[in-house]
Design a binder for these strands. Sequence first.
DNA 1: TTGAAAGCGCTAACAA
DNA 2: TTGTTAGCGCTTTCAA
Lengths: 322, 322
Amino acid sequence: MTTIHDVAKLAGVSPITASRALNKPDMVRPSTLQRVKEAADRLGYQPNFVARSLRTGQTRIVTLVVNQKTTYDPLMFEFATGVSESCRAHGYSLLIYPAKEPNSALDELIGKVDGLILTDIADQDSRVEDLLGKIPIAIFGESRHRIPQVDIDDAWGAMTATEHLLGLGYRDIVMVTSDVKLLFLKHRMQGYSNSMISAGLTPKFAFGSLDILGGEAAMGTLDQLPEAVLCVSDSMAIGVMRYLNLRNLQIPVVGYDGGYLGEITTPTLTSVKQPFYTAGEQLAQGMFQHLRSRRSTKQVIRPTLVIRESTWPKAPDTAGES
Amino acid sequence: MTTIHDVAKLAGVSPITASRALNKPDMVRPSTLQRVKEAADRLGYQPNFVARSLRTGQTRIVTLVVNQKTTYDPLMFEFATGVSESCRAHGYSLLIYPAKEPNSALDELIGKVDGLILTDIADQDSRVEDLLGKIPIAIFGESRHRIPQVDIDDAWGAMTATEHLLGLGYRDIVMVTSDVKLLFLKHRMQGYSNSMISAGLTPKFAFGSLDILGGEAAMGTLDQLPEAVLCVSDSMAIGVMRYLNLRNLQIPVVGYDGGYLGEITTPTLTSVKQPFYTAGEQLAQGMFQHLRSRRSTKQVIRPTLVIRESTWPKAPDTAGES
DNA sequence: TTGAAAGCGCTAACAA
DNA sequence: TTGTTAGCGCTTTCAA
């Protein structure tokens, strides 16, 4: 293994000059710079990151903390890929840390990596307070603390979806949701409510677990079939579609997530597409900015509605039904 | 930040004794051991991994090299989770490295991490030869080299699936596959062929790209509808089902992967379940064993057939049709 | 069983 | 602009 000493010797300079040439080129005379670079090239010199880390106190590694349960989730993977790409672009490595419990202690990572990116932020998330000041953190979600954060405007996404259905002529729209205490669910429910109330209508909810079965079950709790259904996730929407299919019913359904789940259903699913890749990319960038300059940016990204086959205009002849 | 010096001072010993107490307890007198442990506890001492790495030359990090294109694939994520869990259990960290090109140079990782886990092993994979001897590697796939490797028995999986259909009474079974040069496809095709030939039947193939559209297209290339279809992936199977749905046809379909894609189709998809989590876990374990003892194990894991709604016994009244 | 000295490879701080 | 000195925190010598 070649060290910076070998490079320095070959270039005829001291190790520190070689180090400077490689890391801070403008602190060194051009001719020296070139000799060092040539020497490094010739020897195939690769700096030892561990030694550098020990000296500088920076590992150039950031850690993405993921709830182990959502680890299989392709959406989370899309987010992780965005983070990963951004890391590469900034010369950082990404360590994936699957946390067993959502609020598990992350102390063991302190001092081992330069920063943490937290996901699955709950309404009351003790991790943020616990880690504040101990290690730089950035969160995918919202926090009142001055830390880098990227959030997706869930209220806006739900509003867009609701207004899409309203625009198609439907009035009796039910939201299929879950009573799990998750911030983004709350926001989606609020967005839907706001749009309904603005249109002079009453919001109505059907509850089930946050998965396919939950969507199916939620439909079973309704006294009568609504004109259209808006779901808080694609998986619930698939449950709703199954419920409708089994009974040979046809009403418009809108999902939420916009992943490829909605592409393989029949009919394909109109859905609110979450910009997870972008979110990951932006959040990592926020983290790097924070590491450099201590500044913390707060960003909100808006989802987009992907219109596919599961929504269509209300037929005029049935307009007076409700 | 507390160092081993602080611990040593509090325990009234030298730093090196403290180090020994924490790392090689049996080299130290029990009473000393206890004092050091107490001191470490009281101070909340966390060893500095970077310093340790610099000294020992080991980073306790292994890197999973993933083809960037398959990064979104939930199956790959399942594999990664298995690797990740195994790492945690052995006190290692996992670095995810998404490689741009499948055969991209991985030299930059040499010296930075203790070992590489390679996936997406192609028929001719130059990476293995390139890295051999430079850094410990373990592969998900098959290699004639003496390196830790875990493979999934794809031939066996396809045989099981074929025999399932044969056992249900079908004889005219077509395999929907792709002509991409991938080892696992070859093996699945061989497994199917073997079973068909053993049963005195002729294997028949329909080709398309390795995705939903490809499955649909492959069906279009057939002169006549077979009695049953076996696919080399769930996504192709979904394409096949769409083809059948659009034409109101009903024949049994078997997929391959066994992920949750098959759970959301109607009917749910009988499929060969790939043990990706286990494979990841085992492969990481093989890597650690190799790092400790230089021994390399070679493992083959068998998939299991998950029988769901898309396959059913052949109706006796149509037995003579073909 | 314990400790002293040394050094892993690199780069701040200071000095020239 | 360049070099000297020193030390990041830990653990492997070697000696006691």
